[in-house]
Amino acid sequence: MRKHWKRCFDSNNEQSKRQSIEGGTSGPISSPSVTKFDQAVSRSILTKMFVTEEIAFQFVERNVFRRLFHSLQPKFKIPLHTILARDILSLYDIEKMKLQSYLSYHCQKVCLTTDTWMTLSQKLTYMSLAAYFIDNDWKLQKRILNFCQVEGHSGDVLGRAIEGCLDAWKLHQVFTVTVDNATSNDVKDGLKEIDDSITRIFNAVKYVKSSPMRSESFKACIKWEGINYKGLVSLDVQTRWNSTYLILEAALKLRAAFDLLELQDDKYINELSKSYGVPTNDDWTYAE
């Protein structure tokens, strides 16, 4: 027992000295002297490294990369890039199952956002789908559910893609869906109830923006009314609801200038009368 105790004591002292030289044992990496090589574990770490660091698959076959790993652990068999790609797909399936279990437990209501891109070279369209939700600990969470190729930008195509993705994730308690600013997406349906009023104000803005002379005349009205607002009205963008908000916000601040323009410029009345007419008091009230 004395001999055994002495051997253990000497071994522990030697290991402590080694750990002191190597920086101690407080770090996340174990000491090489007690680490047992495992091909499967090392290969799993390599796979996750290529995913998290976004490294090209072919990099695994470069000579400098292989020489580095051989110097660190000659026993490690570095996979080919095709095998690495399969490992990443397997890792994706595992992580997807974990996330699906997490969503089923934490996600009661989900808000979705989607965006689309088209590649210039191949003319291929891709769609991303992200989910936002409050977990059981009342913390906001975000998870990317899908990034896939779709047939086009139309609302029907994107709707079917989103529906298929939700079925795959078994998510059916959708609260909202926020889409990008594509022309195929209806983003202003909520304004249809006061569409005529909005149109009359838009036409008034379009009139003063249609030529430099009309713009200068409108600026003179602003100056005459003593309006301190420094901004100017801009034209609407049909696929951006916030542009409607901004144009109405500016027009309301310049309402007195539009009223003065109506008294001074006969062309303003004549041109707007060809369509919906000049803005009325009710129109400005709806705009507010």
Results as ranks from 00 to 15, higher is better:
W284Q: 05
A256E: 13
D195G: 04
A220K: 15
L72V: 13
F59H: 12
C107W: 06
L171K: 00
E53T: 03
Q15R: 14
N270V: 11
R214H: 08
G226F: 02
G226K: 00
D180M: 10
E61I: 05
I78Y: 03
N203H: 10
H106A: 07
L272I: 10
M97Q: 14
N136S: 09
D189E: 13
T280V: 02
P28A: 13
M213S: 13
Q238C: 06
Y286K: 13
D195T: 01
T178M: 13
V174E: 02
T119G: 10
S16Q: 12
Q122P: 00
D236M: 07
L254H: 04
D135W: 03
F218H: 09
N281H: 14
G159A: 15
L263W: 05
W5L: 14
H4N: 10
H153I: 11
I88T: 06
L120N: 14
G277W: 07
L140R: 03
F37E: 04
I78K: 01
K142H: 09
E271F: 03
S90I: 01
G152H: 00
F65S: 02
T280M: 03
R255L: 04
K77C: 12
G164P: 01
A287Y: 01
I144L: 15
N242D: 12
T125L: 01
S90M: 12
K109N: 11
I227K: 00
K188R: 15
N63R: 10
T239C: 07
A85H: 14
Y276R: 15
A161F: 05
C8N: 13
I144W: 00
